[in-house]
Each structure stands twice: as C-alpha cells, then as structure tokens.
Design a protein around this nucleic acid. Sequence first.
DNA 1: GTCTATATAGTGATAGAC
DNA 2: GTCTATCACTATATAGAC
Lengths: 213, 213
Amino acid sequence: MARTQDQRRAETRARLIDAAADLFARKGFHAVSAEAVADAADRTTGALYNHFGGKEGLLLALLEVWKDQTAAELLAGFEEITELDDRLAALFQALTRTDEDRGASWLLLELELWLHGARDPAIAEPLARRYADIRARLAGGLSDWAETAGVPLRRSPERTATAVLGVLIGCAVQHRLDPLAVEERAVVESLRDLLGLPWDGPDHPEPLELLDS
Amino acid sequence: MARTQDQRRAETRARLIDAAADLFARKGFHAVSAEAVADAADRTTGALYNHFGGKEGLLLALLEVWKDQTAAELLAGFEEITELDDRLAALFQALTRTDEDRGASWLLLELELWLHGARDPAIAEPLARRYADIRARLAGGLSDWAETAGVPLRRSPERTATAVLGVLIGCAVQHRLDPLAVEERAVVESLRDLLGLPWDGPDHPEPLELLDS
DNA sequence: GTCTATATAGTGATAGAC
DNA sequence: GTCTATCACTATATAGAC
C-alpha cells in the first residue's frame, strides 16, 4: 500500500487539524499544548511546526476548514427537509448536538473560535466571512421558502436570517447550561414568529391582537 | 488616614476581582497569569492566593460578583425606560457596548465565563442560576408590560424571555464580528415579533398574512 | 506585643521554539 | 531532544492594625 509523499502529508495535516478541533473544543486553545495535539494525531510536534508554523497557525488552518465545512453541514438539513418546523428544529439540533464520538460539541468550538476572533483581527476576518456566508445561504433558503409557501417574510431575507441565526445561537448558549430551561418546541415557535407564521401546535393561544405598545 | 485590616482586605479583594474581570475578558483566562492579575491590581500573587486560593478560585469569585451585579445592570435599563422600543434597544446596547475605560466588553467576559462553564460543572452551576435569574426577571418585566399594554404574549413569559434573551445574545455575537451586518433596528423589530407586536417604523411592510406553511 | 494581611523569593513542572 | 521562559503555586519574611 504505497502512498505518495503528498498523500502522507495531506493525511498528517488532516489528522492534526482533526485532533486540534477536538481538543480545542473540549479544553480550550490555551489549555492544550502543541505536544498534546501532536500526540492525539499520532504525530510529533515537529510535524505540527512543519505544517502550521505553530499552535496559532494550526488554529487558523482549523478555522479555514471549519469555515468551509460546517456552514454547509449546518444548512444541509435545513435545505433538504420539507416540513418547515422540522427544518427549524434541525437547525437547533445541529447547534445543540454533542458529538458522541469525541466529547466535543459544535457549539463549544464555535464559541471558542468566536472568542479568539473577538480578540484577534486575523481570526475575526475569516470568521466574519463565515457568518456572512451562513446568513446569505440561510437568507436564500428563507426567501425561497417564503415564495413557495406564499407567506411574505416580515422583513428582508438578510435581516430575517440574522434574527433566525441569533435565536439559534442564543438559545443554544442557554440550552448548554440548562437544557430543561430551553425547550426545542419553544425555539421553533419563536423562529416561526420571526417568519410571520402562527403556530400549529395543540395549545394554540388566543389570537394575536395587532396593537401597538 | 487609618484603615482597618478588614477594609484593606476588602479593597484588595475588590481590586483583584476587578483586574481579573478586565484581563480575563480582554485576553482570556488561560492567557493571563496570576502574576499579571496581581500586578494589574497593584498587589502580589501572595495576596491573590491568600484570598482566592488560586487562579481558579479567583475566576469563581469573579463569577459570583458578576452573577449578582450584571443581571441587575442588564435589566435596569429595561425596567426603567417606558417606551418599549427603547427598552428593547437598551438591552441590545448593554450587550454590545464596549467598556471605554478598559478595553474589555461585557459580551467577551460573558462568553469567556460561559465557555468555562460548558467545561466545568463547578462554573456551570452558578452560571446557570445566573441565566435563570435573568430570564425570570425578564419574564416578569415582559409579563407586566403585556398586561399594561393590553397585548397578550404569544407564549408563556418564561418562554418569551428565553427567546428574547436568545435573540439578544445571538445577535450580539454576530454584531461583534461584523457590526454593520446586525442593525439595532432589525434586532428590535425581531424582538417585537417575539412579543406579537407590529412595527411602528416608517417602512411598514405589507400586513401580516396568517397562513401556515 | 501579637496577629495577620500582604510582600518577597523562590520551587518544580511544563510550555513553545528550533 | 534541548533550551529558555514562564507558569501555578508555596514557604517564609515583613509590616501595619489592634
């Protein structure tokens, strides 16, 4: 089973990034040593420095992979499922799901990266592009849905997408600390509000009165 | 200007916690040494260890102060201002505001603490109580408002508060990376949606059609 | 004078760099 | 693998309050 040097190199790179994603999410960037990442990837620190120049470079490379992959993953469910409530629920589940295999969760790495981005412009820039990309794709999906369903969005697709993403992130943050306090059904209902839809649940409340404050 | 030992002790404690809040927010817990905190507080590591037992103990003490103070601060504006839109805007501003004096921002320390809570149950517990407290106070405020304004909430005050807090956090997270992409007006409008209110802006769109998907 | 909050000066361990 | 810096933490000393 001969492999070319390029293949070996690519695999080492992938292994290191994978190990970094797991460890950085579980313990945090600063709590993980370069050696620990290398060990988890079955490589040496020499390989890590050769590929990424250091721990910081590894974080940046991880962010690039994360940026390209996870936006697609997050929205895949949303774009494939037909029933709206299920689509909305799938989005929330994607954010709150804990990766069984590894102890990490998506949300942890997401906010670990965000925190570094808020402190370091070099990290902030690709991260901001990533969020803009997610919002754009979400806006497109919502716009298509509104047209198909004949339900006009309450505001521009972009603003709607920002609010939807906001609810998802903000509720996921609360959910992580106190799962019982944030019911999935309540999150879906809130998202429906943002899209200008009534609920079809059994406990439908009294009808909405359009009064201003 | 004689001071008692108790007064000196209390001031040292306060200085250390204050310095920790600033540095942990700006650089992150693991990127800050105990000595750096002590220096910033014009004290020594010895004092730090005497008071808090270590850096971790300092983080916990900071969390307790944070827990008790900031929930009140966040909601103070909300509970005092009369105009609803301004109240909602004040909440968002509180989360996105950058502390001028020190480089830190509230949101940074908030998520720094959250990240530690997601990894350490000892941190998670007081943090979860903090969020529950904020939600409870917010729910009370929303409930009072709904009654006064004669606008029934679209769901229970608790669920509404969770969603409102979610939008605030999620939009603040996006705002930090890309301020132009998250307009305050859009956030306020989204919050109004969650409360079951129309908008009173000049660019009022076509009326809401109550169609299901 | 006694007590104790705070300061000083270290210890061993481990980090990242090359 | 080695080197240097720095980490969290501690043992001991000093100084200020009663």
